[in-house]
Design a protein around this nucleic acid. Sequence first.
DNA 1: CATGATTGGATAGTGATACTCTCCAATATT
DNA 2: AATATTGGAGAGTATCACTATCCAATCATG
Lengths: 208, 208
Amino acid sequence: MRISALAAEAGLPVATVKFYLREGLLHPGAASSATQASYDDSHVRRLRLVRALTGPVGLSVQQARAVLQLVDEPGDDLYSTLGRAVGALPPAGAEAAGDADPYPRARAALDALGQVYDPGFAAVAQLEGALAAAEDAGMPITPERLARYGRAAADLASYDLERMPREPRDAVEYTVLGTALYEPVLLALRRLAHQDAAVRRLGRSSVG
Amino acid sequence: MRISALAAEAGLPVATVKFYLREGLLHPGAASSATQASYDDSHVRRLRLVRALTGPVGLSVQQARAVLQLVDEPGDDLYSTLGRAVGALPPAGAEAAGDADPYPRARAALDALGQVYDPGFAAVAQLEGALAAAEDAGMPITPERLARYGRAAADLASYDLERMPREPRDAVEYTVLGTALYEPVLLALRRLAHQDAAVRRLGRSSVG
DNA sequence: CATGATTGGATAGTGATACTCTCCAATATT
DNA sequence: AATATTGGAGAGTATCACTATCCAATCATG
């Protein structure tokens, strides 16, 4: 399969496929001569994955590369690989400013939820940023709501964890892609559930 | 309060404040002369809100403007205003291609969850796109997982709905900002819950 | 084997986005 | 009166994700 066939298969312009090759998102084909390389199914699958990550998931090319690298070569330390993998996903967390208690809101939240607080984990910074943003916007999250959201998140996490593959390589792929790909699903479901609840509660006619 | 004081208060360059004025994200100050206008607390609050939306929430200036307009002047049809408001938030949904069953995955998912299916609602397209992306990437969502996620989303929605203000204007603000600002919180909590569950299940030492 | 198409590779260009800078004459401040 | 600041408009900048153009080296075809 030459590059034009690959591009056609993936529904992308050849120029874009070349771009992904250059950017290291797609592994090179097997070079058969100075001006020829052959591509296979693995390239088609990879392109689909790249499009999924850069499209609906909303990763930048840089972020997608970081994620794919971790999936391709997970370290032998599963915990830190998972941490780095999730850290590679947006949104970026707030920078830790001072050294003393850099993430006060996140720490308080996790304490209240009875969860481990590890300031080195990227999602802590994300949580801090999200809580601060809600405060700044004048809609702080009440402890009660936080508890509710936290419980829901823990339920889902426990479900997901039970289904995590044993093999480290597969575990990283499962976690990274599961995080990246299922988050938009969860958000869409939450929005639709709001919609559904609104219809049921208010009645379509009474508000429309 | 002149523009430089406002900028200082919000921690932004004057040029950026001018930019937001030009873009219609910030309402003009009260003009006291040809080259002077005075700004007040409402401008400070608005700037905070703008930064929250364009920062952690990740909206573009265009999207933020759309959201703010809806908050500022909600229509008299609450249902459709809420629909439009949520539609103004990213991610953008997939375009409805054919006319027959444009969102098959989303329809099936909502049927399975026993929820209303309204193809006009933006989140349906988002769900379709998210489900398709997961499939494309080779990690389709199982019906079981979908049910689990859907139940969690419904729980949260029901909680949120119970707390929705009665007054339409406040309801729109609550819903739009709640959607935009609380989503990042939920995602961060889910990631942290994964982390926490991993530590508890695997034990930090056994994987690190 | 001649000839036109395609390839990998490199460089440059494009359009969108979110600021950021510069300028200006008209005030404000001192 | 001298200096600083303002609102407003226009242009400039940096980044991003492609997209287009070139080129010499093959390939495919008659």
